[in-house]
Write a protein that binds this DNA or RNA. Sequence first.
RNA 1: GCCGACGUAGCUCAGACGGUAGAGCAUUUCCAUGGUAAGGAAAAGGUCACCGGUUCAAUUCCGGUCGUUGGCUCCA
Length: 607
Amino acid sequence: MNNQPDSKEADQLFRSRHSLAHLLAMAVLEYDPAVKLAIGPVIDTGFYYDFEFSTGKIPTPEDLKNFQKKVKKLASENIDFIVKEISADEARKEFAAQPYKIELIEELAKNGENLTTYTSGNFTDLCAGPHVTNTKEIDTDAFIISHTAGAYWKGDAKNNMLTRIYGLAFASKDELDAHLKQKEEALKRDHRELGKKLQLFAFDEEIGKGLPLWLPKGNVIKEELENWAKETEKKWGYQRVTTPIITKENLFYTSGHLPLYKDSMYAPITIEDEHYYIKPMNCPFHHKVFSAHPKSYKDLPLRLAEYGWCHRFEDSGSLFGLMRVRGMQMNDAHIYTTEDQAINEFVDVIKLHEYYYKVLGVDKYEMELALRDPKNMAKYHGEESDWKLAEDMTMKAMEISKVPYKVVHEGAAFYGPKMDFQIYSSIGRAFTASTNQLDLFMGKRFNLEYTDKDGSKKTPFIIHRAPLGTHERFIGFLIEHFAGAFPTWLSPVQVSIVPIADSHHEYAKKVFDACIAAGIRAEVDYSGDSLGKKIREAKVHKTPYIFVVGDKEVEGNTVSIEVRDLGNDSDKTKEVENKVAPLLVDEAIMKIEKEIKDRSLYSVFKK
RNA sequence: GCCGACGUAGCUCAGACGGUAGAGCAUUUCCAUGGUAAGGAAAAGGUCACCGGUUCAAUUCCGGUCGUUGGCUCCA
């Protein structure tokens, strides 16, 4: 387990959680005496135990409540946990009726590890411990049996699916309550909730799962991001291309994707005896752009960018709001370089990420270098020497960049090492926002070449990069990151104009026209609602600025400005005067125009 | 894909022993013309996700499908 205790308090909590898992097993055994026990480890928020229930005995939510009562009762019975060291043979006898335990015993015995059991009351479990010495150490108000889930034995989809029962457990009831409260708060910031409330995107059964509709307000964010990416990439020396979303199947045989990913691609369309696939990625298309004309070393590095429309037939069970969809638009580009240029280009890609994150105020992120999984070497194509070189080069680039990173020995792409950027939303959820690769394989596969100084033909190195990931996942992230209160440049509505009475509608329209002329996204509330209601309406939609216009404003050709209050969630630096003394219309517009142009995270009216 | 849970009006949710349903908000209309987070009234809105089965009768019970979701697996 990775959850080794590192302090006395943590150690005590670890013991309590672990012991609760055993008490849960006791309750479950009473409910289904023939249940097969798998494992019951401690996790960050408590514990779980995996079971294989007898036919027809899968517990209902009602049963879970009973387990909870039973565990509570057991915990209050002052049961001792008694540890015992046993031999493999004794263990085999003791757990003869428990096939999963037997499997564990064989493994442990093979590795020459000592076996221990813990006995609590009439229940003995194979377990490395540690546990409480007596259940009176457990706070019986600080845990709940929360929910069930399916989980494969040993995390392998080829194995049986077991029923996992999760428990939340903390050192005190206060901490448990705090955890539940925090989860509730997190739900309010959940991009699915906010997306509905702020009318950013929607799904429709008739269209299909994982295929989002971008509503007008959400589309504004998408376009702003895309414009920003185009502007930035232009400055960084990228050229834009457009490639089809559909292709004859052979392209994906050339790339090697088809045999590997057939199941997660939309099925082919057959027409005039040809199979066409909808593209799940843009790479091969960009390679074809590269090879459309002969290339010289002088053309390199060649950076081809496209917000490409990709479709992947993801497993229905893995779809998740905007974060995991079947139709996505990717901030993709491929950089074709000489061997000498590759590291520098890779470093620049990392710098580009840093730039994007800085503008968006994403300060918690890290890189993860995914190398080949030694247990699954068959997945990876290409020459060993190329892999070594690519791994060295990526590592070097990461060193140079000085961004913190960790190395993982699995998860590389089949054609090269992968560098992911993990970012964390304000509710603590981690996202892989961007994946990048250094690829020495596809160039050869597609016979890409350029003529070098000496007239020889060489294969370019290829960097795959996508700093803003897909619109879908990235905006999903941004919704949670900003809790729906986007910086002004990204806000669907930037200024909400609220006339005090009907008689001010005409003036409101004038102010509106001035905003629109300045490129500010404005709306006038012409409803017959009360002033308070109109203000509230603008505020629940998290509009950055409300212009209130009444007699005073008409007379002075001004607007009274209400600045969005970010409440307790706000960063200190975002503190603003909520009410701004009436400003001339032109002046107010100029200030906000500048804030938008700067893509500022902060209000121009900040203190 | 797998295991589980859930699906009632646009949204958030009530509801019943099996006898075709209700609230708040949103929408529309009317009244009020209001100076900073919900003014008042009325109307309209549902094949209770869909398809089968049991039943005199199904939104309610059973089965299947679709969708959402908690996890597991996967993620070029």
